[in-house]
């Protein structure tokens, strides 16, 4: 049975408290290093902050999930193992992992702590998911954002673990955990260093006419007109010219956010156990607004009422939203 747990992001202790107070069933967070995929400057938790945050959450009946969802470079696993040891000592309720070596370590050394399979593992078939369940005791899989609801419903019948899907936030559709675009331009790895478009390589340049160019490592990846809404400075959502498209076009994806609020009843009916809100890099204001909106919606649906969702478009990237592949494979 779907419990429709609400899994909410926190980039700082204050954001974690905000998420808990706004009605999160669980909050996910990470350390201030490469062990998680939001290794951004000034973001994340020290071990002491995590311990205090776990205590705050547990006192209020909220779980804390620790993201260890990057891939250690070959032979450099100590940082990930130490992070797992600290997390277990701190009393986190689950680890979110992508790498098999990290999963294996936790399964052997900290078998009392649940393992969730990160979207960064890109496990989208029953066979792949079952492999993680059988070999590492994974209890939940976070599905990539490439599946329709009928496909999720089918997978649910073929795997022995819970399903978590994203419902709001960044709409990353690359083969997750395999994207090397940032690495190509900056030398830093999204998957091993935890940085997608590192801020140290990003620059915004305002032109005299009010246009703004976003640049990564010196390469212009988009240019927004004076009145045009902007997006994140990520290569996958950049606009490029090509011989056949001299006017410039989105070669990979458009700056747009996922919003599945209208599909919540169908997702619950399909057996999705938990709903994830993306955005550890976002502010307390975002966390408060989105968590409250989805808390109310999930509670309405559980009570058999029509969900009356708050309008969240102002918080979306490019101020545009989509239901992506969850609605139809024709999303692109």
């Amino acid at each position: 049975m779907s419990l429709a747990e609400l899994i909410c992001p926190a980039g700082t202790p204050a954001a974690l408290r905000t998420a808990v107070d706004a009605g999160a069933d669980a909050v996910y967070c990470g350390f201030q290093d490469a062990t998680n995929a939001r290794n951004f400057p000034g973001l994340n938790f020290t071990p002491d902050e995590l311990a205090a945050s776990v205590a705050y959450a547990h006192e209020r009946g909220t779980k804390v999930l620790l993201a260890l969802n990057t891939y250690p470079p070959a032979g450099k696993v100590d940082l990930w193992y130490q992070a797992a040891d600290i997390g277990a000592r701190t009393g986190v309720d689950a680890f979110i992992v992508a790498d098999m070596g990290v999963a294996d370590y936790i399964a052997r050394v900290h078998p009392q702590v649940r393992l969730h399979l990160s979207v960064q593992a890109a496990a989208s078939s029953p066979e792949a998911i079952r492999y993680y369940c059988e070999n590492f005791g994974v209890k939940r899989v976070v599905l990539p954002r490439i599946l329709t609801i009928p496909e999720i419903r089918q997978i649910r019948t073929e795997i022995p673990c819970e399903i978590e899907t994203f419902i709001f936030g960044n709409h990353g559709l690359m083969v997750e955990g395999r994207c090397s675009l940032t690495n190509f331009l900056t030398g830093q790895s999204t998957n091993m260093d935890g940085v997608c478009s590192p801020a140290s390589d990003v620059e915004y340049v305002r032109d005299a006419d009010g246009s703004m160019s976003s640049q990564l490592a010196g390469f212009t990846i988009d240019r927004f007109g004076p009145e045009e809404k902007a997006g994140y400075p990520t290569i996958c959502k950049g606009r490029y010219t090509a011989p056949h498209r001299p006017e410039g076009y989105y070669a990979f994806e458009e700056p747009v956010s996922l919003n599945l609020s209208r599909l919540l009843p169908e997702l619950i009916d399909a057996g999705v156990h938990a709903f994830k809100i993306e955005g550890r890099q976002r502010s307390k204001s975002y966390v408060r607004g989105v968590v409250r909106a989805f808390r109310a919606a999930v509670d309405d649906i559980r009570a058999g009422r029509q969900a009356n969702m708050a309008d969240l478009v102002a918080l979306t990237e490019g101020q545009k939203q989509t239901q992506g592949a969850f609605e139809t494979k024709k999303w692109r």
Partner: peptide
Amino acid sequence: DAEQDGDAAFFSR
């Protein structure tokens, strides 16, 4: 004061 979201304010220009 976290009454507005910085990314959203950036997106809206």
